[in-house]
Structure formats: structure tokens, C-alpha cells
């Protein structure tokens, strides 16, 4: 089994608010293997930021075990420095003085690392050439985020934390950032990512965890989640049912698919059938078509997007709570 570089067991985080103590993370487990890209998803307030901040060593925990590269991120002194030398963090707030140039920022930030990348290497890697000698105050939002990425990778980190790394990017900049993350991953960097863009998680992550109210709801590869937690949507055009699809035909199909279709939606002569068991639905549909004398045309069966899975898991959680 591949060794975990991030190990979190039974993590509990609380913070004080005007209404007393609030439990932001409530018994969370998380294990991320070397070289893995892991995306942590959750709605605002779900606890993902608190979780990541504890793993980064930027927040205290109430209880639980946390190790990154075998070191407790809450460590001080030599262990702290050792860990910081091997991780990179993209913070939401850039943290670079607006009065200096990108090159000056990179030169300074690389100074405390033992094996930093060269400035030229990072400029090339993150594609900063067009603005590396401009002051940070003159950079656009997207350019600043690229500089943030550059600053995070200049120490040649083994583990990289990306907190919403492409927020504010235009589509082409986002694609470039994805390429960079893919390149880092190919070089063996372990990456923990939080994002609001589910297609980003779908594109980049080996595994995805969805957290809600401080707990892990589901976890797995994007594909596994789509298969395990989402239905498939079957779409087919009904031909030969006369001038339109009459009510009898629609009622007949509903009867034929009773028990296997969660949802049936007609748009003109095309029907969309949402089902967790597409094999059974398909079998019944073809039998019904043969018996009714219609032809099934222009088939497709698609997996739901990660977004549909995410929304379903979250709505199930809320429904479960309201019932409970």
C-alpha cells in the first residue's frame, strides 16, 4: 500500500464566535497518498477551510491526529521548519507586498528554502514572463493568482496546498493552471486542493472528498462517485408513435418503467429517463417499444457530472437531517 503523506484521524476543530463555540470539523478522517491529487469539496461553512488550515499548520485543533510527511503540522522549532521546507501553500490572500515586482517577490521568498527552484525555472513553469518585472500592484487578479502559484512552488514542495487556486481566472488561464498542476503531479507532488469548480475537481483529482458540517460525506475517485452516488440519464427519441407522442404512449412507457426509473421527462418526442439501474430500464424500454410498434432512435446514456453528484449528496444530507 502506498504510504500516506497526509494522515488525518478523528479531527475536531472548534472556534469561538459571538454565539459560543462552534464545531467546524467534527471527527474527520483523511488519508492522502504520495503523488495523489485530492480535491476537498463542500459548501461554504462545510469545514473544508478549517480542515486544510489545520493540515497546513495555520490553525489549532481541539483533538485528533494530523501528520504531514510524518510531522505534526502544529510542531514548532526544527520540525516546523523541516515541514515548511517541504510544503507549498497557495493562500486565498496573496500575501505579497504591492510595492515590489514579481521577480523581487520570488527572489525573496526562495531565500529560506534548502532546494528552491531557480527564478527562471518558476517563470517558465507558471508562465510569468510577460509580467515578472512589473510591480505586484499593477497585476490583474489572474496574474496575481499565477504569482501566488509561483511563490507556492518555488521551494520545490513535496506537498502542495491549493486553496481555490483558479478563482478569478479566465477559462484559458484556468486551463493553463490545470496544466501546471498536472505537470507538478507528474513530477510526484502530492496536492490537496479545495475548489468551488467541480469540473476542476473532476479534471484534476485522483480522489474527491465531499464534506458537510465538518464530516466526510463521501469519498472516492470522481468516476467511482459518479457511479456509486449518481444515476445515469438515458435519452432516446421515440419515432413512429404517430404525429406526436400521445398520452397513451406516455402512460404506457411510465407503466413499463415503473420501479426502475426515478424520473421521466418528455421534451417533444424525446424522453429522458433517470435511473440507477440502466440495464433494467433499457430492457423494459426495448420490450415496450416492440410491443407498442415504435422505434427508438438517437440513443445516449450519460453519467451525471460531478456537480450533479455533489448537489444530490448535499441535498440527501439536508433531507436526512430534516427527517431526523
Amino acid at each position: 500500500m502506498t504510504k500516506s503523506v497526509i494522515e488525518v484521524s478523528d479531527l475536531v476543530v472548534e472556534y469561538q464566535s459571538s454565539k459560543g463555540s462552534v464545531r467546524a470539523v467534527d471527527g474527520l478522517d483523511l488519508h492522502i497518498a504520495a503523488g495523489e491529487v485530492y480535491a476537498l469539496l463542500g459548501e461554504n461553512g462545510a469545514g473544508k477551510t478549517s480542515t486544510v488550515e489545520v493540515i497546513e499548520g495555520h490553525r489549532r485543533r481541539l483533538s485528533g491526529q494530523v501528520k504531514v510527511l510524518g510531522i505534526d503540522p502544529a510542531a514548532t522549532g526544527r520540525d516546523r521548519r523541516e515541514l515548511r521546507d517541504q510544503i507549498g501553500i497557495v493562500l486565498q490572500a496573496s500575501g505579497i507586498e504591492p510595492e515590489i515586482t514579481a521577480r523581487e517577490a520570488l527572489t525573496l521568498v526562495r531565500s529560506p528554502y534548502r532546494n528552491p527552484r531557480t527564478i527562471d525555472e518558476v517563470v517558465e513553469l507558471v508562465d510569468l514572463r510577460e509580467f515578472v518585472d512589473q510591480r505586484v500592484s499593477t497585476l490583474s487578479g489572474g496574474q496575481r493568482r499565477r504569482l501566488d502559484l509561483a511563490v507556492a512552488v518555488i521551494g520545490r514542495p513535496k506537498v502542495l496546498f491549493l486553496d481555490e487556486p483558479t478563482t478569478g481566472f479566465d477559462p484559458s488561464a484556468r486551463r493553463r493552471a490545470w496544466d501546471l498542476i498536472s505537470t507538478l503531479r507528474a513530477g510526484g507532488t502530492t496536492i490537496l486542493l479545495t475548489t468551488h469548480y467541480l469540473e476542476e475537481a473532476e479534471f484534476l483529482a485522483d480522489r474527491v472528498g465531499v464534506i458537510s458540517r465538518g464530516r466526510m460525506l463521501i469519498e472516492g475517485s470522481p468516476r467511482d462517485l459518479q457511479q456509486a452516488h449518481g444515476q445515469r440519464v438515458m435519452s432516446v427519441d421515440i419515432v413512429g408513435g404517430g404525429s406526436g407522442v400521445d398520452e397513451d404512449l406516455q402512460a404506457g412507457l411510465s407503466q413499463a418503467l415503473a420501479g426502475v426509473a426515478e424520473e421521466i421527462e418528455w421534451i417533444g418526442s424525446r424522453v429522458h429517463v433517470t435511473s440507477s439501474d440502466t440495464n433494467a430500464a433499457l430492457e423494459r424500454l426495448t420490450k415496450w417499444a416492440a410491443a407498442s410498434g415504435v422505434i427508438l432512435n438517437e440513443w445516449s446514456i450519460e453519467r451525471p457530472s460531478l456537480e450533479q453528484v455533489f448537489l444530490k449528496v448535499n441535498s440527501d444530507e439536508i433531507e436526512g437531517d430534516s427527517r431526523g
Partner: peptide
């Protein structure tokens, strides 16, 4: 906070 993320003492 940025410096806190680095090995700078």
C-alpha cells in the same frame, strides 16, 4: 501569513 507558510524562522 505568507511567511508563516515558509521555513523562514
Amino acid at each position: 501569513q505568507r511567511w508563516r507558510s515558509t521555513p523562514l524562522p
